[in-house]
Amino acid sequence: MSWFIRKEKGINTPTEMKREAPDGLWYQCPNCKKITPTREHKQNAFTCPHCNYHEKVGSDVYFNLLFDDNEFVELDANLTSGDPLHFVDTKAYPDRIKSTMQKTGLNDAVRTGYGKMNELDLVIACMDFNFIGGSMGSVVGEKIARAISYALEHKVPFLMISKSGGARMMEAGFSLMQMAKTSARLAQLSEAKVPYISLLTDPTTGGVTASYAMLGDFNISEPEALIGFAGPRVIRETIGKDLPKGFQSAEFVLEHGFLDFIVDRKDLKDKLTSLLSMIS
């Protein structure tokens, strides 16, 4: 190794500049550390072919995965957040919203739409975790409520894909009441006997778990998703000891009787199609 001699000392590459593989060609699984070509990872619905680790993905991936040819009509796409409380913590709420919108290209933490899944009509509401932790404020509640109303009106099954840290604190009381609002619409959907499937993905906690996410005719999840009411940190602080391995995982929740089944993301479309076909 003496062909090149480092003349200047102290040359360091910052961590964020260090790449194990050129971006866009390879995917390294954060779980098993094995490398997969990006294309293969994508074809595998962003799950690791080696260890089945499910990468957190957004609404665009789920819509693409489930709607035939990625064709769907988006509902209420332009709904954005108000600032009813003039909320300021370390940052003013409207500024936080604005910068998050710019960063993510999303208008809020849920997108809703209808289209066909293997030729079956379906309304989907899918949350985006990278929009303020997938937190539920007025926009999330309202869009989900309207999507349910659409499903109710057209008698089309409703699929909710949850991924959220819970209610959005910056809308305080308004956020809390979104739990009530969505549950009200789901009660109506249930009375009309329109199927509701709730898919809980990693992570689903707080007010989302305590409202629409747990109210499915079928509650299903992806492998190893974190699902709970209180977050692990809060529980650890309450009981003052470490939590057992696998506590609040999808498998744990299934074992305790609150999920119908766990499905690999790459099998999701087929399994949902079978399920809906059997009850239609």
Partner: peptide
Amino acid sequence: RGQGEAIARNLK
């Protein structure tokens, strides 16, 4: 025992 489910069911 499903704290989230219990609350959610009551709301509905």
